[in-house]
Design a protein around this nucleic acid. Sequence first.
RNA 1: GUGCUUGUAGCUCAAUCGGUUAGAGCGCCGGAUUGUGGUUCCGGAGGUUGCGGGUUCGAUCCCCGUCAGGCACCCCA
Length: 431
Amino acid sequence: MTFQALPGFRDFAPEDLAFRNHILAAWRRVARRYGFEEYDGPPLEPLELYTAKSGEEIVGQLFDFTDKGGRHVTLRPEMTPTFARMVSARANGLRKPIRWFSVPQLFRYEKQQRGRLREHFQLNCDLVGEAGPLADAEVIALAIDVCRELGLTAADFRVRLSDRRVIQALLVGAGLDPAHHPAALGVVDKLERLDPEARDRAFAGAGLMDYIDAVVDMAVVRSWDQLEDLAERYRVDVSATELRQVHDALGEMGLYEFVEVDLSIVRGLAYYTGTVFELFDRQGKMRAICGGGRYDTLLQSLGGVDLPSVGFGMGDVVLGELLKDRGLRPAAAAGTEVMVAAVTAEDLPATLGLAHELRDAGLAAEYAMNGVALGKQLRQADARGARLAVVIGPDDRATGMVQVKDLHEKTQVAVARDAVVAHCTATLGTS
RNA sequence: GUGCUUGUAGCUCAAUCGGUUAGAGCGCCGGAUUGUGGUUCCGGAGGUUGCGGGUUCGAUCCCCGUCAGGCACCCCA
């Protein structure tokens, strides 16, 4: 009988967990750098938390079941409802703007594909209580800096920046009734993946055949000039003030090269009210690394407090694939700092004593348990990444000395037994 | 959930038209080396060819089913 992990779920062997921790540590470093505080909620939530706003349809995408108390529960598919609940309950007492982040493991019952599993870790950053465009720029800058922190450059990824207020103004200018905007946004969201024929079918399916040109014209806007031309053609006032301010603010931060205005970005979720953005790899062969935007009415509808908000989510799967693709997967950290080696079986008790003293001093120490030849033990020391090896033989014990080898510098010195721990601590501390 | 496609050692791959005991590199283990490491040399372990069934004298190879991965759809955290 053999077993394997469920489809879409991952085992994390030490090498894999080291990589995951590498990503999550970068998330936390950068979020704290921006003054964000970490929170968490339950991984299991009442099903109603998600069906209340999204409807029963999403149950098909959830890991839900009935618990022994008869409650209908589900593994959390997203963090926003939990976040809304927690912030709403405390909003009156929290100084604004509220900067909170979380690194939850989220679950979704969907057929897995590359970059999309049934479980992933996601950095969630939300800034609540500030309606101005600098809040939008702040969270976008955070997302960019996470990627930079991990070694990615402007040659590797970009932010595609848009604003639903601008999109909707253009659609109104083209004569499209606001009631049809959600359908139009739904088509725009997948526009770049469709060939002309499929595109026409999508528009027909949405009942928007008469607006194909208008919607496509809007979606191809990549510059201020194009935007102004379009606004002029529709004789509509599209100042795009907020979008320009977000863009300018990121430029002031020195992040201009990472950001491109792109009105084809609309985001699938209905609750975005202003700025929307996504991070993509430059080659455009992967799914989005990160997505987010402004949602000024969501907290009101979910938690009852009326506060403007902006935030994003960034998963570990696509990001990890991009890092691996760019050779940015770090070498595994050394597990052992000092290998204590015994020359003969009679020396083994002495190695046990020294290894434990080293461990008490906070160093990662190991010794060979199976009495293999000294050369073998030193080879093990290399394999384990140890910087130092301490050799103890009968001669050393007779003289009260040990031999300390620096495996990187290829040097060896005799050190008094009583001074070994201090010697190792000093050597490792200065490297 | 639907369609297409792939599945050989821990990893990357090979195996003639369906034909003898399924091979190689890397990795792993051991030895050369009984007080000194990464190189080198020698040796070894490791396979129900994803799993189950069918066709055939004979199946890694052809057919069916199933499981898993990939791609597309659906959906988008």
